[in-house]
């Protein structure tokens, strides 16, 4: 293995002579986590923007006129359910059950699609009422923040479908497990961001 410095060594060793083993993908989880943290910064800035501009209605409609909390609660449920079904997919993956993994992934994707559909319905409804992103600073910030989250979910679903094809073709090989693990972090991370969205944008918006 690597050079070990023991108390009996003659001279201090400042570098290791032997090369470390670098198994394929051994640092993927950490690298992906750092990517998620950078994504977290994007959302933080969008949240800050919304926090600053969230009260500037330009005499247009405010949160109370626009938001339907029943719809938001339904949306939140969809995303939360998709999170737990992804967890079930990971558990099935651990037990090497290919079929069960695929089924849970498909269910996760469907919940994700339901979430997106509800969000697009909400956006469409608002724009049709004349409350589009160009109406006021509040609406610009709202559409940017919630839209960016929605875009992430969209890409998550595309990634999910890609992985379904990969698993179908090659089974649960180590590389596919690693990819599924990355998507799992991505998916749960999006759910964490959504907690911020429904609290900060919708619930606190209704209290303004």
């Amino acid at each position: 293995m690597s050079t070990t410095v023991t108390a009996t060594s003659e001279a201090p060793v400042f570098y290791e002579v032997d090369e470390h083993p670098h198994p394929e993908g051994h640092s993927t989880a950490l690298g992906f986590w750092i990517y998620l943290m950078s994504d977290c910064l994007i959302f933080a800035i969008l949240f800050a923007t919304f926090g600053v501009l969230g009260g500037n209605y330009a005499a247009g409609p405010g949160p109370r006129d626009l938001f339907d909390l029943n719809l938001v609660a339904l949306n939140t449920t969809m995303l939360l359910l998709s999170s737990i079904t992804y967890g079930f997919a990971m558990l099935a993956m651990d037990k090497e059950r290919v079929k069960a993994t695929q089924v849970w992934l498909v269910i996760t994707g469907l919940f994700g699609l339901a979430f997106l559909s509800i969000e697009l319905y909400e956006f469409h409804h608002m724009i049709a009422e004349g409350a589009g992103p160009q109406r006021s600073a509040f609406l610009s910030a709202f559409f940017t923040l919630v839209g960016t989250h929605g875009l992430h979910v969209t890409f998550g679903i595309i990634w999910l479908v890609t992985l379904l094809v990969q698993v179908q073709k090659r089974g649960l090989i180590l590389a596919n497990k690693r990819r599924l693990m990355c998507l799992s972090m991505f998916w749960h991370f999006l759910d964490v961001v959504w907690i911020g969205v429904f609290t900060f944008v919708y619930l606190l918006g209704m209290l303004r």
């Binding site: 449920t77 737990i84 558990l91």
Partner: peptide, 23 residues
């Protein structure tokens, strides 16, 4: 090898139930 601890059925369900209540 994957570098991440995996949950168990129990931990996922605990998290889910807590999330439902907290939402």
């Amino acid at each position: 090898e994957l570098g991440v601890a995996h949950g168990s059925m129990r931990s996922y369900m605990t998290g889910f139930i807590l999330s439902v209540i907290l939402t």
